[in-house]
Design a protein around this nucleic acid. Structure first.
Lengths: 119, 119
DNA sequence: CAGGATCCTTTACGATACTG
DNA sequence: CAGTATCGTAAAGGATCCTG
């Protein structure tokens, strides 16, 4: 295996880390769902459908599975009448909040910069 | 226009901000290119092709145009022999570094968490 | 060198219908 | 309720060739 890690050492680690993170966080809905779960606490599937606005069941299901695999959210099945499933963000998932905060901050500033320079 | 901003006031702003930001930063290469430009300073098209690893010319071209439109990178054409084009991250583009830093940090921690819990 | 044009594959996403 | 299955569209991404 050729691993020319000579030229840009620490840089490669960074780039790889960014790739890793973005792979986990990519997609149209991840941040949206995470943000909702961070505020809503335990939520059921239908709650999320309602809160996340335009998402379809298929997408929500898939994204939740992704994030469950990555231990960002937890899934709990209660054996009630027609079964109840609760989703909740994990402690680990909460470590994403600095990222989300920064993105939100930047997004807000972006809006402002657009309006302030609208000629 | 119906603007039911009553229930979840500041939340909606946040979600919208995140949407805005992610729309601009989505795609497989944006962060990668930005990260490279932040370290490399002025770079030519070919430099980027080499540094950004697996990217194809078409993708690089498209992503750079996107980011130029959003004023994240600048494009300068020097009238040399076969033309030279220099790309550089703008001051505005540099405001993304907190995001990128957080993502990189998280990505690194993610790797560590995987190895430390590999049973 | 810096890219546009073209063609093609793959993935993401979405609407609808159906099941335990 | 909490999904899965199926189908179809659109966008993303990639390989190759071509041009000023």
């Amino acid at each position: 295996m050729k691993q020319n890690i000579n030229s840009t050492a620490g840089c490669k680690v960074r780039i790889t880390a960014i790739k890793d993170a973005m792979e986990i966080l990519s997609g149209k809905w991840k941040f949206h769902i995470l943000g909702t779960l961070m505020e809503g606490g335990k939520m059921r599937f239908m709650d999320l459908i309602r809160e996340v606005d335009g998402i379809a069941a298929k997408m929500l299901s898939k994204e939740l599975q992704d994030m469950e695999m990555n231990r960002l959210v937890s899934r709990t099945v209660l054996n009630t009448k027609p079964v109840t499933v609760e989703y909740e963000i994990t402690e680990y998932g909460k470590t994403l909040s600095p990222i989300i905060d920064e993105i939100a901050k930047w997004g807000i500033a972006y809006r402002n910069s657009i309006y302030s320079q609208a000629e």
